Amino acid sequence: MTDEVLWTRPGAPEVAEMMAELLHEYVSRYGPVAGERMERFPDDTLTPPDGRLMVLLREGVAVAGGAFRRHDSTTAELKRIWTHSSYRRQGLARRVLEVLEAEAERLGYRRLYLTTGPRQPEARGLYLAAGYTPLFDVTVPPAGPLPFEKELPLLVEPVLHAATPGLRGSG
């Protein structure tokens, strides 16, 4: 089964269910403060020229997605990594990471940064398995945000601030 990568914008219809389920997931794990934290980053930071938002579509349904935004001149920060609850344990989050990493590298970013929460052991495991370096002591029980980083090899000529090919669904 082939999933379609769709580069889109936060207000697009295909993103609405993703963000609603992601917010529900965060609130169920961390309480109402999670919604406030999601709103700290304006949606426009997840769009070109410095950020991107993508969803994986399977037969027209958004099954996974994620985004990145500029953290600094050489670093992209991954945000909103999500897999629909009905499609988990199929490697989709890993696929989202691969797509986001490749796009960040294409844009000339040299490093990725992200944080996940202490009540998301599956996310922690994903990032460790995907080669992200923990910026915290993995031997200590987590109490706060868990930061990770990953260096990107610059294997392609960077296309800084270029339009994303195939951007559609700009709703």
Rank of each mutant, 00 (worst) to 15 (best):
V5L: 12
G11I: 06
G11M: 04
A12E: 04
P13Y: 11
E14C: 05
V15F: 08
A16P: 15
M19K: 05
M19H: 03
L22Q: 15
L23C: 12
E25V: 14
V27H: 05
Y30T: 04
P32Q: 03
G35W: 15
G35C: 09
F41L: 06
D50N: 04
L53W: 07
L53D: 02
M54F: 08
M54V: 12
M54W: 10
G60V: 13
V61Q: 07
A64G: 00
A64T: 02
G65F: 08
R70W: 05
H71C: 11
S73V: 06
S73E: 11
A76D: 14
E77H: 09
Y87F: 14
R88V: 09
Q90L: 01
A93P: 13
R94W: 15
R95Q: 11
V96E: 00
A104I: 00
A104D: 01
E105I: 13
R106A: 01
L107Q: 12
R110V: 13
R111Y: 11
T115R: 10
R119L: 08
Q120T: 08
P121S: 04
P121I: 07
L126G: 12
A130Q: 01
Y132M: 03
T133G: 12
P134S: 03
L135V: 04
L135A: 04
L135I: 04
V138P: 03
T139E: 13
T139C: 10
T139Q: 11
V140E: 09
V140H: 07
P141W: 01
P141C: 02
A143D: 07
A143C: 06
A143P: 09
A143F: 10
P147S: 09
P147V: 08
E149T: 12
K150Q: 05
K150T: 02
L154K: 04
L155P: 03
L155A: 03
P158L: 06
V159T: 15
V159Y: 14
L160A: 03
A162K: 15
A162D: 15
T164L: 10
T164I: 11
G166W: 09
R168D: 10
R168A: 07
G169N: 05
S170V: 15
